[in-house]
Simulated assay, not measured.
Amino acid sequence: MRKARIAGLGAVAALVVVGLFQLPASPFARNDAPDRTPVAASEPLGEPPVDSPRDSTPGKGGPQTPAKPADSADPSITYPEQGSVSYSVLPGDPTPIGSEGRLLTFEIDIENGIKGIDRTELARFVRETYGAPQGWTAGGKWRFRQVGPGQDPGFKLMFVTPATRDILCGGGYDHYTSCRIGQRVVLNIARWVNGVPNYGASLTEYRKYMLNHETGHRLGEAHELCPGPGQPAPVMQQQTLGLHGCTPYAWPYQNGTRYEGRLGKYNDPIPGT
């Protein structure tokens, strides 16, 4: 189903979103472990972010319009609007994820100020999502391995507060979406905790989509469109902002085949901007 990709097509900017609601408990919740290995966010950011809405009119940074509650949510993880812009790096795991293809190493960073995440469970969730039968390793093109503090990762998977999302991703006031910029896969903790309204699937499924979508940009994938009403949404569709007749689907593969739509993106508004 794959259309030929245009040479030089860069990552496009992934949109994932800030809610004012806190929702039921998830397996990621626990009393916070002490922060480890703060990492300053002062390194160059690289090219423009893939999911930042630079083609949308930015908001003025005022209060957001509350969204309707999502299908599920996690009240056990708490966070300020603006964190410290420093990070704790989770310990690595030497176990390879996938059996063939190009190896990409990654580290998991949590912004200091975010509380209640079970870090061991979070790392397990990330690794299992990447290595799932329908995940990014399914086609034999990619392998992953999680590295820890002091190592040089192929990308950083960063869980950040809404305002830090704007610092890292740029593009004006947003607070709602996530993005990929350079070697950084930036996940907005507000979306991780709250999901999005009317998504039509569980918070766990939305988290898998969020992780796979933004990582897909790091792998060179661009935004895609819904193939048709009632069909699963491609993982590279901006499902955070709208399904456009498709049903939610969190995965890049389906029945062993790469599942894709036509290249393109919708002009969906970002809540609160």
Score class of each variant (00 low, 15 high):
Arg165Pro: 00
Ala132Phe: 01
Pro48Asp: 11
Leu219Phe: 13
Leu187Thr: 01
Leu122Lys: 05
Thr177Tyr: 02
Asp51Val: 06
Tyr253Glu: 02
Thr129Arg: 02
Gly8Trp: 06
Val160Gly: 08
Met210Thr: 04
Arg207Phe: 04
Ala138Asn: 03
Leu157Pro: 08
Leu23Ser: 12
Arg165Leu: 10
His217Cys: 10
Glu128Met: 03
Leu15Pro: 06
Leu241Ile: 08
Val39Ile: 15
Phe21Met: 04
Phe125Gln: 05
Phe144Tyr: 12
Gln231Gly: 05
Arg5Ser: 14
Tyr209Leu: 07
Ala29Phe: 03
Pro227Ser: 12
Arg262Trp: 00
Asn267Val: 11
Ser76Asp: 15
Pro252Lys: 04
Ala123Ser: 15
Leu103Phe: 10
Thr204His: 03
Gly150Phe: 11
Leu219Arg: 01
Ser26Val: 06
His175Lys: 14
Gly150Asn: 11
Asp74Gly: 10
Leu9Gln: 14
Gly148Ile: 03
Arg143His: 10
Phe28Asn: 05
Asn267Gly: 14
Thr57Tyr: 08
Gln239Ile: 02
Gln82Ser: 14
Gly256Glu: 09
Leu187Ala: 02
Ser52Glu: 11
Pro27Arg: 15
Gly228Thr: 13
Pro75His: 11
Lys141Pro: 01
Ser26His: 08
Arg184Asp: 13
Ala67Ser: 09
Ser56Glu: 11
Trp142Ala: 02
Leu203Ile: 06
Arg262Asp: 15
Pro34Asp: 13
Pro197His: 03
Lys115Ile: 04
Tyr199Glu: 12
Gly220Ile: 02
Glu205Asn: 12
Pro248Arg: 10
Pro91Cys: 04
Asn255Ala: 13
Tyr176Val: 11
Asp51His: 04
Ile114Asn: 03
Ala25Leu: 14
Arg207His: 02
Tyr130Ile: 12
Ala73Trp: 00
Asp268Thr: 08
Asn194Thr: 11
Gly256Tyr: 08
Pro91Tyr: 04
Glu43His: 05
Ile110Val: 15
Ile270Tyr: 08
Asn212Glu: 01
Tyr253Ile: 01
Thr137Phe: 04
Gly59Lys: 06
Tyr87Asp: 06
Gly264Arg: 07
Leu263Thr: 07
Pro96Gly: 07
Lys68Met: 08
Asn188Leu: 09
Ser72Tyr: 01
Asp35Val: 14
Phe28Pro: 03
Thr120Gln: 14
Ser26Leu: 06
Gly230Asp: 10
Tyr253Asn: 04
Glu214Trp: 03
Glu128Leu: 10
Gly83Met: 06
Ala70Phe: 00
Pro133Lys: 13
Gly59Val: 13
Gly220Phe: 00
Ser76Trp: 00
